[in-house]
């Protein structure tokens, strides 16, 4: 006799947000890793923690996928939802990649690039925090069925995020130029290590921005 109660499926949006929280823990760890680049022991420990956190995020992701059976009907397209989830999870993956690359060997000539690197990292991580704020708006978006003033607000937020990503890429260019200028003085292994670190940090900002834009795709703006 509880047909009505049984009609309502388990909403996947709250788990989506809690997955985002786990992902943000990974990024927080990453920030700490960048603060302790010069203490190798502490860095190794932090990277192990990060791997653990990434694994937990993976588990949450799989949980969400499992509890989203075919017979559930949602206000946004199923494939859109899964794409958002996948992008969100890849942020955690990228954070782990960065951590692992950093733990391979200490960065050679760190002092030389320290200032530019930290500025670049800060910009990229800022893009992520912006995206996280957008995911936190999903409650309000559901309330307004993804339209109206709330959608306009999120749209503005997405535009800001995109702008910040653009600024981060500029910072990356600056850093790369410097790296190539100093290239002669670095061993090829050290050069390649630096290149990889920079590329991967850039990807963090790119994926975050992509996620923000995916949210924009489900909005009903005129």
């Amino acid at each position: 006799m509880m047909t009505i109660a049984r009609l309502f499926g388990k909403s996947p949006f709250a788990p989506l947000q809690s997955h985002m929280k786990k992902v943000s823990l990974c990024v927080e760890k990453l920030t700490k890793i960048f603060d302790s680049l010069e203490e190798n022991e502490k860095l190794q420990r932090l990277v192990t923690d990060l791997s653990q956190l990434e694994h937990e995020a993976d588990l949450t992701k799989n949980d969400i996928r499992n509890q989203l059976p075919k017979s559930i009907f949602m206000p946004i397209d199923r494939s859109h939802f899964l794409e958002i989830l996948a992008l969100q999870d890849s942020i955690a993956d990228v954070s782990e990649d960065i951590g692992l690359t950093l733990s391979l060997r200490p960065l050679v000539n760190y002092e030389l690039f320290a200032k530019d690197l930290q500025a670049f990292v800060k910009k990229c991580i800022e893009v992520f925090w912006d995206t996280k704020r957008i995911i936190e708006e999903i409650d309000e978006l559901l309330e307004s069925s993804f339209g109206g003033i709330e959608a306009e607000k999120v749209k503005t937020m997405v535009e800001e995020t995109a702008y910040k990503e653009h600024k981060a890429q500029k910072e990356k260019l600056k850093l790369l130029k410097k790296l190539y200028n100093e290239g002669e003085s670095l061993s090829s292994a050290a050069f390649y290590h630096w290149l990889r670190v920079i590329e991967e940090i850039g990807i963090l900002a790119q994926v975050s921005e992509k996620l923000a834009n995916r949210i924009r795709m489900v909005l009903e703006t005129k």
């Binding site: 009609l7 309502f8 499926g9 993804f146």
Partner: peptide, 28 residues
């Protein structure tokens, strides 16, 4: 009951509800 189920599904189709369990249709 069936009328109310139909009505709730109608609201869901208009992007109103977070998640609906379509298995209820089988129940009916």
């Amino acid at each position: 009951t069936h009328c109310l189920v139909g009505a709730v599904l109608g609201v869901g189709l208009a992007r109103g509800i977070r998640a609906l369990n379509l298995r209820t249709l089988k129940d009916i």
